[in-house]
């Protein structure tokens, strides 16, 4: 199963969990993203920001090959992950997704009990150990255990939106993936639930590497260690997203190198 690579949280040189060179991403004939090199540091939160249609979600979903489910999707580039290219020949997208978990914009628990939701990934991986133990641990890590420990048999759909999202996080981390991709995980939540999920993310980065798409710049400022700013290139009549700038969050928001970034974070983006 998934071995825990020895972590070295205070390493000075950046240790990468993933190194993503996205040359071109197509949906059919439509070029959605081009020329973006996104390194994702281990045990850090990398935030993807940018205007709508800049391809930040496309980029995120390319990192665990979720986009392979979309007809016409074509990927040119390399995504290095634990020593291999996940787009390499003979790599099964299904296996990739077992190592790189995902949390979606809309909380999407399965219509089964809270316990079964969290145990789901363990069961499809034929986990041999104590499932109950791992479920409890995952729910504790997702800061949900105290709220649900007396009703593990209740439907996952009976929880509130914020609880559902934390359940989805628990479900994603139960199999201890190396990387967690989060696609605007708070956009359907109220401010209090958002705060809880944000606290959870900072807590989780001790054990996991997180890539986070957010449309909320304050959220990126609060939780991301590194921020990647994407923009849309509308020249040539098409809308193609690309990476404008990537750097430590403090630098991106305090002292951006690119004018586009500066305009966007100061709200001057049309």
């Amino acid at each position: 199963m998934m071995q825990q690579v020895a972590t070295d949280t205070d390493a000075q040189p950046a240790v990468l969990a993933m190194d993503c060179k996205l040359n071109r991403i197509f949906y059919g004939n439509f070029l959605a993203v081009r020329d973006s090199h996104v390194p994702i540091e281990k045990n850090k939160i990398t935030g993807f920001i940018g205007p709508s249609g800049c391809g930040k979600s496309t980029v995120l979903r390319s990192l665990n090959r979720m986009n392979d489910l979309i007809e016409g999707f074509r990927f040119e580039g390399h995504v290095q992950f634990i020593g291999q290219d996940i787009y390499g020949k003979g790599v099964d997208p299904v296996v990739v997704r077992r190592y790189i978990g995902m949390v979606f914009q809309q909380p999407n628990p399965f219509s089964m009990s809270i316990y079964d939701n969290v145990a789901f990934g363990l069961r499809i991986n034929r986990y041999k150990g104590d499932i109950g133990d791992r479920v409890k641990h995952a729910l504790q890590s997702a800061a949900l255990w105290d709220e649900v420990k007396d009703k593990l048999k209740a439907s996952g759909l009976s929880l509130s939106g914020g609880q559902q999202q934390r359940l989805c996080i628990a479900r994603a981390i139960a199999t201890q993936p190396q990387v967690l991709l989060m696609d605007e995980p708070c956009s359907a939540l109220d401010p209090i639930a958002t705060r809880r999920v944000e606290e959870l993310m900072t807590e989780l980065k001790k054990d996991y590497t997180i890539a986070l798409v957010t449309h909320n710049m304050q959220q990126a400022m609060r939780v991301a260690d590194t921020t990647a700013f994407f923009s849309v290139d509308i020249s040539g009549g098409s809308r193609t997203g690309y990476l404008v700038e990537l750097g430590p969050t403090s630098q991106i928001f305090g002292n951006p190198r690119e004018k586009l970034t500066k305009d966007y974070i100061s709200g001057q983006f049309s």
Binding site: N64, M66, L69, V94, V95, V96, R97, R98, Y99, G101, M102, F104, Q106, N108, P109, F110, S111, M112, F120, G121, I124, N125, C168, R171, A172, T175
Partner: peptide, 23 residues
């Protein structure tokens, strides 16, 4: 979105059908 969640966990198409869609 429920099926996406299952795919995101590393389910094959068959597993998505038998474990999510049918139940």
């Amino acid at each position: 979105i429920m099926k996406d969640a299952a795919y995101g966990m590393g389910c094959t198409h068959t597993q998505v059908i038998w474990k999510i869609v049918l139940p």
